[in-house]
Design a protein around this nucleic acid. Structure first.
Lengths: 214, 214
DNA sequence: GGTGGACAAATATTCGAGTATATGCATGAT
DNA sequence: ATCATGCATATACTCGAATATTTGTCCACC
């Protein structure tokens, strides 16, 4: 066996990534039969993965009616933004306060990768998958210094869903390079108040852009 | 068929309740074979339920080593309390601000049930399961006015875990009737600041009592 | 006595066939 | 034309046997 992890873990990660990367449209059904063939696994493994994802809201499930990619609505985006504004600052404050040298190191590296990754895909209409990945990794690194695993996990899941919305926005590309630079500097300077201000401004700006497309 | 819901949902709720009610000791393995016999279902259903619960931290899972009831530690309690102090006030504030007549009605009813339910079990050393249930229902009703389903769900899950710690505390019983009365009055008076103060005081007090038993 | 390796038992994981439910379509009645 | 009913198909759900892995035990060997 070349696989170290269980099939469950493989399929879970694969489906999760497909959704976050935007390979599937919001509202699209996720049929077990199709996923079984694609991942060469039995129906049980696929169901277990989908149910786990559903528990975090990354797929919708209705009994006896199967699974589907969540619909994106203006109402849901409002709730999501509200929750992010309430909770992500908590994680960021802990991170900036508690993060050590290793945290700084990863953060600097993640920011560098973000700056050198092309933002748009070939069509020029969407964020490139690579940039989306680098962007998510930067924000993950930003709060990764938070020692409280619960708060960190909650914030991270909110970010994942926000990334899903971003993936499906087709609107004008903001210029966010300065914002990210500012966040990095504030974090490295251990200026929690400034970092939180910048982050909340980013979240609000993201909301305004995305809400125009729903 | 007498069952309306799927077997999955039945087993999920049953296992969840057994854990929250304290029928199983922290750290105790949850063997699929045993659960299958008890709930008269196949192994797939039990696994799906356990994996879903694991996603919220209500059971621990390690690949190829099965499932178990989470261990309760002082470190984890500290993280949990910190997260509760950060997040539950958010949900309470929304609830007190946004809750309608129906919310008030359920809240008053839940409080009444709490006041008339005996607090201790027969041995006098533990909280009675009925009181635990009523206590959880009161706090759930308290924040149920929050319209943001995400914030509400996050707060509720933190409360569930806190209830698990409470269930396993064997220490001196606090007198909490006044606190609950105060919370009810503040909520009905729509005094969010006061309600939040009372709630945070309660969370801190709970932490102090529970941390002595770990 | 302690160590390590082979074997056996217990347990977790995976798979696919069998069953239950939902969905779409055709038919007929109001 | 609209709605209801029944049938056919597609899909979800469940089960238990088959497989893979871990855990425990015994024994040879140092």
């Amino acid at each position: 066996m070349t696989d170290k992890a269980t099939a469950n873990e493989r399929v879970y990660s694969a489906i999760r990534w497909e959704i976050l990367a935007g390979d599937r449209h919001p509202g699209q059904p996720l049929k077990t039969a199709e996923l079984c063939k694609r991942f060469e696994s039995g129906v049980g493994v696929v169901r277990e993965s989908l149910l786990r994802l559903a528990e975090h809201g990354l797929v919708q499930v209705r009994p006896m009616q199967g699974f589907r990619v969540p619909e994106l609505t203006a109402d849901d985006l409002r709730d999501l933004t509200e929750a992010r504004l309430d909770i992500e600052p908590l994680a960021l404050r802990y991170s900036v306060t508690q993060g050590g040298a290793e945290w700084e190191s990863h953060l600097v590296g993640a920011h560098h990768l973000l700056t050198v990754t092309p933002k748009q895909d070939n069509s020029g209409k969407r964020y490139s998958p690579e940039w989306g990945k680098a962007h998510g990794a930067f924000h993950t690194a930003l709060i990764a210094g938070c020692r409280n695993r619960r708060v960190l996990g909650i914030a991270q899941r909110l970010r994942d869903t926000a990334e899903l919305y971003r993936r499906w926005s087709t609107g004008p590309q903001e210029d966010t390079a300065d914002d990210h630079r500012g966040l990095l500097d504030a974090a490295l300077a251990r200026d929690a108040d400034l970092a939180v201000d910048l982050l909340t401004a980013r979240i609000r700006a993201t909301h305004d852009v995305l809400s125009q497309h729903l």
